[in-house]
């Protein structure tokens, strides 16, 4: 499976990914429409892009009381089926990474669906911080990638 990986040593919080994703979702540049969120934490000097990690055992999927979250077998993406979503926000509470957001216009939860295998955020990441990469063991890899992502944060913190 391929994942969007995030290199915190390359992200500059230029927000091209946010605008690209927002455009894909709504045709506009409203940041709140984006499924990827990037923040510069000035006090700790961290550039942190965050989007769904498509967990192997996705708790959001398991606890969705509307069965509105499914796994796309082709891309491995954990997706929200908007037509089924009731807007209860249980998935937002379930996600430990804060990667599910709420669409206040349609009153449904929104998250990354890997753009069916061609993520727009990656295509518009001008720094190379975001990559869409193939890996053999999806489960292990999912964790490893996040681990690396985290290690790089720790590096910055300890410097």
């Amino acid at each position: 499976m391929r994942f969007i990986t995030m290199d915190v040593k390359k992200c500059v919080v230029c927000r091209n990914c946010e605008y690209a994703c927002a455009f894909r979702q709504s045709g506009n540049f409203r940041r709140e429409d984006s499924n990827i969120r990037v923040e510069y934490h000035n006090d700790v000097k961290i550039c942190l892009p965050q989007t769904c990690l498509h967990c192997e055992d996705a708790w959001c999927l398991e606890i969705c009381p509307a069965a509105a979250i499914v796994k796309d077998e082709d891309t491995g993406a954990i997706e929200i089926v908007s037509e089924r979503c009731i807007g209860c926000k249980m998935c937002m509470l379930a996600c430990p990474f804060g990667n599910i957001h709420f669409d206040k216009i349609n009153m449904v939860s929104r998250k990354c669906n890997l753009c069916k295998g061609d993520p727009n955020c990656v295509a518009h990441c001008i720094s190379g911080a975001l990559q869409y990469t193939t890996v053999q063991d999806s489960c292990l890899n999912n964790r490893e990638i996040f681990h690396r992502f985290i290690e790089s944060i720790l590096d910055i913190n300890t410097e």
Partner: peptide, 16 residues
């Protein structure tokens, strides 16, 4: 560069 010459950004970080 991220705003004025976006592609420099890629090569700067690749080099780093």
């Amino acid at each position: 560069p991220p705003y004025s010459q976006p592609n420099l950004t890629q090569s700067i970080f690749k080099g780093r």
